[in-house]
Amino acid sequence: MAQGIAKAPLPDQRNLAWYVDKTVQVLVFVGGISAILLILGIFVFITKEGMGFITQTLDIGEFFTSPNWRPTSENRPTYGALALIAGTASVTGLAMLVAVPFSLGAAIFIGEFATGKTREILKILVEMLAAIPSVVWGFIGLSIMNPLIIDLFNVPVGLNVLNSGLILGLMAAPIMTTLAEDALKAVPDGYREAAEAMGATRWQVIFRVVFPAAKNGLVAAVLLGVGRGFGETMAVLMASGHSINIPTSPFDSVRALTATIAAELGETAVGSDHYRALFTLGIFLFAITFLINLTADLVVRGPRKR
């Protein structure tokens, strides 16, 4: 049997291939934990810059209850974030009011009604929508929505809660649609078939069977959409009017937490109170989005794992 080629059997020794394999294993492990290191790094670095401010200068009560964000005031700077929080909340709230029903509706249509080519094309369109950069959305708010709102509602300024809320809604909708559709798809076909065999119509199947079964996934989709809206920066910076204000109507201009950091960080001296105050806003944003993501993850995985 072609003895010329046959070799002595491989001895039980760690050879080059074995060491290469171990080295690769260590390298990819480092890559694997990089995500943990980075999330910790983000926490450490923004805390490092902001912590001194929180312990020395910041009045927590003022931060959450005062609407006066005047970090550059000559005689007495104030750091009340209430108006900024209200700005973020109002814009995100309006965005969700628009995006949640429409995203769920779109997810149901794509997942439960559309078939074949239609479904494929709609999914691609939704994916493309999600790819539009936020600065382009901000520009749309500024240059297209702004004059439109002024004309339609006869108001002096079109950069307001309505404008940025709609923009943010359109931005958050694709990702929510995709996640919601995934959640619907995760419901086994057997459920649908069983219900249809019992004579239920399609919409009965959707509302009575598919929706309850996909509930957790849908809630997570909405939560992640909220997180997205909460953290959005450029669009809100450009379309919300940039005035620090607790809004009383959708036509009021506001300023969001994210937009405040983006607008002011460039003008602060490194290490100044103002600079550190902006990092404090960052810590706040980080904490909120962390909680939202954690909750979404627990909602999806919790019941399955435990």
């Binding site: 936020s134 953290g231 959005e232 980080f286 993501n293």
Partner: peptide
């Protein structure tokens, strides 16, 4: 690790900016 990846994807872009600066 999986949780960290999800959270990394969810961190607001402006917070990434602060991290980059720091």
């Amino acid at each position: 690790i999986n949780l960290a990846i999800i959270n990394l994807a969810g961190v607001p872009s402006i917070v990434h900016a602060l991290f980059g600066v720091g």
